[in-house]
Computed example of a mutant assay.
Amino acid sequence: MKVRDLLRHLKEADPDAVVLYLAPYVDASEADEIVQGTVSNELWTCERHLSADGRVDKIYYPAVRGTSLGRNEATDERWPERVVILSSIQGAFDG
Results as ranks from 00 to 15, higher is better:
58 K>D: 13
94 D>N: 11
2 K>P: 00
57 D>A: 09
27 D>Y: 06
83 V>D: 04
44 W>P: 05
15 P>A: 05
31 A>D: 05
88 S>P: 10
87 S>E: 02
47 E>G: 07
86 L>G: 04
71 R>T: 06
8 R>W: 04
35 V>L: 00
63 A>G: 08
67 T>I: 12
44 W>N: 10
7 L>F: 08
73 E>Y: 04
77 E>A: 08
32 D>I: 03
86 L>Q: 03
90 Q>G: 04
74 A>V: 07
22 L>I: 13
35 V>N: 00
95 G>T: 04
95 G>N: 06
44 W>A: 08
20 L>T: 07
48 R>H: 03
41 N>H: 10
48 R>M: 11
21 Y>K: 08
48 R>G: 06
20 L>I: 03
28 A>Y: 07
50 L>M: 12
85 I>Q: 04
80 P>G: 07
51 S>P: 02
64 V>G: 05
36 Q>D: 12
22 L>P: 00
85 I>R: 05
17 A>H: 06
1 M>V: 08
38 T>R: 10
66 G>A: 12
9 H>W: 06
69 L>V: 09
95 G>Y: 01
79 W>E: 11
3 V>M: 07
18 V>H: 08
63 A>W: 03
51 S>L: 15
65 R>C: 07
55 R>V: 08
85 I>N: 04
24 P>D: 11
7 L>Q: 14
39 V>D: 06
52 A>I: 13
13 A>Y: 09
73 E>D: 13
86 L>P: 00
90 Q>S: 09
32 D>A: 09
8 R>L: 12
42 E>F: 02
52 A>G: 04
2 K>Y: 09
51 S>D: 15
10 L>Y: 07
85 I>L: 10
28 A>L: 11
17 A>E: 15
1 M>G: 09
72 N>K: 14
43 L>T: 04
83 V>A: 03
46 C>N: 12
84 V>D: 02
34 I>D: 01
86 L>S: 02
26 V>S: 12
36 Q>F: 00
94 D>Q: 08
70 G>N: 08
